[in-house]
Nucleic acid binder design. Structure first.
Length: 409
RNA sequence: GCGACCGUAGCUCAAUUGGUUAGAGCGCCGGUUUGUGGUACCGGAGGUUGCGGGUUCAAUCCCCGUCGGUCGCCCCA
């Protein structure tokens, strides 16, 4: 077995799976335009420093989970593991602050060196929406409303719940963190080994520990609300009011946190229980500290990213059969059939004609492929030169006949 | 990095407790039937049972290793 195989954690897609993927991306592009989010393009690879800087002290992520390599000049480059850092880099480098506030969207492949499992790949794909240069809760509201409408239009909103939390401002966050450390340190004996590790590196993460023993401790851990400054409280209040006014349902998730210090205020995830251990389909929050931490001007920002593969798994099977099959009844009718094909396509109707096979075979194949209608071309001499057989509601026979009755294409 | 489970035809899966020539459906190719159309039937091609070793008279089946896959843990930007 020496034939090449795809790298672990990558995927080939065709047919229904690719159609679902495509449907998610198309829907996203349509909806983000509705909200006035322009397309942004950033490189698939960046200087390693771009991500190392944004991911900061979490050494595991930087050293073990990134696809990094040296180019021929000896520079360390990394395949992007997220969109936000690259967009922040572009914002700083190109002086986009002159355009603030910016509403940007993109989608594409991302790379993380992880063990593949359900809904987790090494090359995966995300949708991304960001608002840069806006400190107002209205930006958070709009970003979340965009996500909610996307999910609704994908028809998956009944299986997804919006979990919402606040991390407060920098002051709030620091105080809460200290409170949590104190609480868990007092119960070291019952804390799981993993969480004892987290206590030093990333105490907020203990809140979403899966260990049963930890859950008991988490239940009476101090709540962030007790540490909230007046400003942070007002921000969260405004966010919730804005969501209600936008018709977005949510539940408060007090244990929902972000590991990095540059996250402030809003944290949210759209979660489903239909995808095994990987329940988050869209996750986001406010990262007011990031652009400043990367050496740019202090810039408030909020955004989210959503897994295309995960969304595609939730989406109902997309409608197929919007293609009309043109069948030539014999070689003598091929030219006429080709003319029909041309007329349909120029009229904006998806149509195709088989490369080979007799009429009977072509009809069988067309039905099996789920064509919406079959146009059988019998020749100018026949009683009915062109016969239309409707196969699904997606086709309108009278419209097809009208198009085909037009002059030579 | 750790753990559990799984690798049989192009695809989805069978194969008694370890037993003789490893089967079926789908797909593909050919034929018959049908004859304005989603038919039925007949036939054919296609396998070193992931790979390597071991136990045994005998291994798809048991054991070890290896590679690959799935799911979970860790991590989750």
């Amino acid at each position: 077995m020496t034939t090449p195989q795809k790298p672990r954690g990558t995927q080939d897609m065709m047919g229904e799976q690719a159609a679902r993927f495509d449907h998610v991306v198309e829907t996203f592009n349509r909806v983000r335009k509705l909200y006035g989010f322009g397309r942004v393009e950033v490189p698939v690879f960046e200087s390693t420093a771009v991500f190392a800087r944004s991911l900061g002290e979490t050494t595991d992520v930087v050293s073990k989970e990134m696809y990094s390599f040296e180019d021929r000049g000896g520079d360390s480059l990394t395949l992007r593991p997220e969109f936000t850092a690259g967009i922040a880099r572009a914002y700083i480098e190109n002086g986009w602050q002159q355009h603030a506030p910016m509403k940007l969207a993109t989608w594409g492949p991302l790379f993380r060196y992880e063990r593949p499992q359900k809904g987790r790949f090494r090359q995966f794909h995300q949708l991304d929406a960001e608002v840069l240069g806006a400190a107002e809760p209205a930006a958070d509201v709009e970003v979340i409303a965009l996500a909610a409408q996307l999910l609704a239009e994908l028809g998956v909103d009944d299986r997804v719940v919006l979990q919402l939390n606040t991390l407060g401002d920098a002051e709030t966050r620091a105080a809460w963190r200290d409170g949590l450390v104190a609480h868990f340190s007092a119960h070291l004996d019952v804390l799981s080994p993993e969480s004892r590790e987290r206590l030093a590196k990333n105490p907020l993460r203990i809140l979403d520990s899966k260990a049963e023993g930890d859950k008991v401790l988490v239940a009476d851990a101090p709540r962030i609300d007790a540490y909230m400054t007046a400003e942070a409280g007002a921000f969260f209040e405004a966010l919730q009011k804005g969501l209600q006014a936008s018709g977005v349902d949510f539940v408060r998730a007090e244990a929902l946190v972000r590991g990095f210090d540059y996250y402030r205020h809003t944290a949210f995830e759209f979660v489903t229980d239909a995808l095994g251990a990987q329940g988050t389909v869209i996750g986001g929050g406010r990262y007011d500290g990031l652009i400043g931490a990367m050496g740019g001007p202090e810039t408030p920002a909020v955004g989210w990213a959503g897994g295309i593969e995960r969304l595609a798994m939730l989406v109902a099977e997309p409608l197929t059969g919007s293609v009309v099959a043109v069948v030539s009844n014999g070689p003598e009718q091929d030219d006429l059939a080709r003319d029909c094909l041309l007329k349909l396509r120029r009229a904006g109707i998806a149509a195709e004609m088989a490369y080979r096979g007799n009429a009977k075979r072509q009809i069988e194949v067309a039905k099996k492929r789920g064509s919406s209608a079959i146009v059988i071309v019998r020749g100018a001499d026949a009683d009915q030169p062109v016969h239309v057989q409707q196969l699904s509601d997606a086709a309108d026979p009278s419209q097809l006949l009208a198009v085909l009755a037009g002059g030579a294409a």
